[in-house]
Each structure stands twice: as structure tokens, then as C-alpha cells.
Write a protein that binds this DNA or RNA. Structure first.
Lengths: 254, 254
DNA sequence: TGACAATCTTGTTTTATGTCAATTGATTCC
DNA sequence: GGAATCAATTGACATAAAACAAGATTGTCA
């Protein structure tokens, strides 16, 4: 079974918001490239809350999760990271990192020193635009996530999550319909703000409706349309007869 | 009663993440300052989803709400804005705005053209740092908000909301204990991802516990400590005898 | 000033989802 | 290779908060 799933930790070479930056750096100085690459393993931390800000990292291969911690020690995952993502951007404010970044599998990153960022901002318009664009894009994603967290049902949240993964893999030239969930159910539950049991139940429910096929961390999307419809209006769990009047009206408009 | 509440639409002159930027701009060119100031009224839109990105705005006085829209027309408020905040930053990605910004009261903004941003990024280290810092700070706030939305009870959400407002007003040199809620209950409910009725009930509950005093949009914080404790561990709505075992344990550790 | 429209509050009912508990199924590691 | 640990599922039950409904208050404009 494993063989049908694409390797997700191939080096990422496709277009990305920061591919331009890589160019700029390459053009500026080739000799230091060796030193700027670092490899990490599962459960390694790239950064911890409170670490001094030294620069940003571009994830080249593998995957990671970024999380914040509340006063009482509770952790909350704010993002899953994939190749091309910039890590450690949160350090610009106050020169201290507010998030911990932990790898989900063997991964490699490219490091850009603070001083390098500064000089590139002045000399390379591409780098400037790329960085601003990337941060701006992250802000937009956060807004969408907030909307998802605060207004969606459990089924909508999981559907949204799977679709985002699917889109992300597609953009990176991997299969958007068959992939491996590198994170645990606990991580997914934490990220989506729901109980782990509910995640399990929704997966099961989707599977019974032939929308997905899931076994442990191997996931196939069988009916993309159904997932998309689920996100737009949460009809997955209801029969038409049990629809409330407002929901019926919304369906009618479609 | 109104007289005891501070005017919130005085021009903001205190320290802010972008006060340095204002300096830089002032130093660069004084003559255009007149043109860059614009005044808006309640319910006016500064930006709409889909608008082409022309530059960013710094809110000088008043207040606004930023919201995104889903496919089915539902709106979700992602942020309330106060003097010193940068508006329109979301346009860096794709040169199109993804959020609508609407004023809650008569407000004024300072406009910085795209071309100006570009030249300032090159020439002024202060502006560069200020902008990156501001965006980074916003990202951190978003993370905290996501955590709040996904893991908090209704009482915790409202407590967190009031504390954030209080801190924001204090930082701006206004009273952190007595202020006007410029947004409607509906806006608050939308922002916090809860029903308007629940917002009303939580306000009432807090009032009965002498934590706050609220009448329409006039709000006083009577017991800051209680609000803070409510955010840390949600004990507001429970008596000690009804605590579950884990919650009791958490309380004991305090 | 009075009437209409918003906005906010309060009471009751319903339901989605969390919590608790038990079991099964994978990994890990001597 | 088998105990031990960790991860995921499944079922029964409890509950916080949404939905629904009705009323009170405030704001607005002729």
C-alpha cells in the first residue's frame, strides 16, 4: 500500500513565494550555501518559544508543525509547514520567537541570517516583494483559518483541512488525491480545535460516504466535489428532510 | 454617564510600531502630508475584497473592523482596528485585497503609496524594521486568536476580548478600565465565533459577579484580576463543588 | 412627538460535540 | 519476538452553547 503514496520529502524545486529569494541569495554569494543547509529529524525542534531571533529558515524538504503555548502549559498548533514555507518569521517582533517549530519527519532547511535579510531587503526587489508577499499570504491564511475555527462544524473543519492539504500537495507537484498525514490525530484535533475522538468519527463518517479512504496515516480523496460541497455548506451530516429552513434556503440558492 | 468615558477618537500620537515610519515619511517629504490624510465616517469602507492594492493606510483616529467573506456570502470579522494599526497589508499578496475594512465611527487615516513603501524599504532601516515588526506582531496576535477561538469557552473568549481591548486602550494612553465598545454585539459575536445571545449572557454573568459593569456600549472593568483568572482557567461559571477532577487538579497547582 | 426599525436581553428547547471508559491495533525497544 | 508503550477507534453519556421565540429597550426620522 505504501508504494502508491508519493514520497513527500523530495527536495522542493517548484515555484514558491520565496523561490525568488533563493535566486537572490544564490546570486549574492554561492560559497556559504553549504553551511546554510541543515538537516533535522522527527521530533527535533528548529526553534523554541523564547529563542533569540537569528534569522529565518526556508523549509526545503519534510514537514513541521508550529505551535504556541498558553500560560498554563497548553499547546496549540497554529500551522503545519511544508517545503517552500518560511519558518521563524515570528521573530521579527521583539527579536524573540513566539512559536516553537518541531519537525514531523526528517527534514532539511535553508537558513538566512538576519544580516543577510537586511542587505537583501535593500539590494533585491525580488526578495523584498517575496518576503512581504509571503507574510501577507500567511496573514490571509490565518484569517481564513480563524473563520474556519469560529464558524464551522466539525465536518467542515476536517473537510477544509483535507482540502488545504490536497491543494498544498498539488501546488508542490505531488498527488493531491493520495498522501500521507505526517501528523497524528492528536495534532489534527489540536489544530482544528476539536476532540481527537471527533476527528476519528468524522474520518469514519467521510469514509462511509465514500468521500475519502483513510487507513492510519494513509489518505485518499475519493470525491473532491463532495468535500468541497461540505466546506461551502455543511450538508454532510444531514438528510435533506432534517434541514432547517435557513439551510434549505441556502441550498436552494446554490 | 457618557462624560466619564474618554474620547477615543483623539488623534493618536503615542509610540507605535509604525511611529518610526511616520518619522521616515515626514523626513522624506513634508509637502504631500496634506494629501495623504483622509477622513471617513461610520459604515464607510476603506477597502473592499477584490480592490486593487495601491498602498497601506495607518489608522490615525477612530476605529474599524476588518472582515473576510466566504463563498456563501457569510462574513467573518478577523480584527478590530485602532489608531496606530496598519490597514491594507493583506494586499501585498497578489496585489489584491482579501479583506474589507469598514469604519465603526468617524476616523482618519494616513495613506502610504506602494511606490513610497518601496523606496522607504530601501532607504530607511527604521521603516523596514517597523513594517516587518508590525506584520510579525500581527501574525503572533493571529496565532493567539486562533488558540483562543479553538480552545476557549464562551466566557474565556469574552474575557480575552475585553482584556485585549483594555490593554490596547492602555497602550494608547486611554483608560483601560472604562471604554466604549464601538462595535455591536453582533460584531463581537461574529468576531469571537459565538451566538449574539451568548455574548449577552456572558456580559450579564460577568456583571452579576461584579467583574464588569456594562450598559449598552459603555463598559467598565471592575475586577481585572478576575478577568485574568477567567482567561487562564475557566472557573467563572463553575462552583468549586461542580469542578471535574482534572480542572480541580489544575486549580490546585495554582 | 410618535412610530418604525434596530439592537439587545431573557427564557426554553435542541443538538453537536466534548468527556469518560474500554478495546483494538501499531510501534518501539530490549 | 514479545512485553511495553503509544495511537486510534468505538460506544455511552453529559453538557455547553446554538437555535428558536418573544419581549424590552434604544435609536432614528418623518
Amino acid at each position: 500500500m505504501k508504494t502508491s503514496y508519493q514520497q513527500q520529502n523530495d527536495y522542493y524545486r517548484g515555484p514558491t513565494l520565496l523561490s525568488t529569494c533563493m535566486h537572490s541569495i544564490g546570486a549574492t554569494n554561492n560559497s556559504h550555501q553549504r553551511d546554510s543547509h541543515r538537516v533535522f529529524h522527527r521530533k527535533d525542534n528548529l526553534l523554541c518559544v523564547g529563542d533569540h531571533f537569528e534569522g529565518v529558515y526556508i523549509l526545503r524538504s519534510g514537514s513541521a508543525k508550529s505551535y504556541v503555548a498558553s500560560r498554563d502549559g497548553e499547546e496549540h498548533i497554529t500551522r503545519f509547514n511544508y517545503p517552500g514555507d518560511i519558518l521563524g518569521i515570528d521573530g521579527f517582533d521583539g527579536q524573540v520567537h513566539t512559536q516553537t517549530v518541531r519537525f514531523l519527519e526528517t527534514s532539511s532547511v535553508y537558513f538566512i541570517k538576519k544580516s543577510e535579510i537586511n542587505s537583501l531587503m535593500q539590494t533585491s526587489a525580488d526578495f523584498r516583494d517575496g518576503l512581504l508577499q509571503s507574510m501577507s499570504h500567511t496573514l490571509a491564511c490565518d484569517s481564513a483559518m480563524m473563520m474556519c475555527l469560529s464558524t464551522s462544524s466539525s465536518e467542515q473543519k476536517v473537510a477544509r483541512f483535507l482540502l488545504d492539504l490536497s491543494i498544498g500537495f498539488s501546488e508542490r507537484g505531488l498527488s493531491g488525491s493520495e498522501f500521507i498525514l505526517r501528523m497524528s490525530r492528536t495534532d489534527i484535533a489540536n489544530f482544528l480545535g476539536m476532540a481527537i475522538e471527533t476527528v476519528s468519527r468524522v474520518f469514519n463518517s467521510f469514509q462511509q460516504k465514500k468521500m475519502i479512504q483513510v487507513r492510519l496515516r494513509y489518505l485518499s480523496i475519493l470525491d473532491l466535489g463532495a468535500l468541497n460541497r461540505c466546506v461551502a455548506i455543511d450538508v454532510c451530516s444531514h438528510t435533506v428532510t432534517s434541514q432547517s429552513a435557513p439551510k434549505k434556503a441556502m441550498l436552494a440558492m446554490n
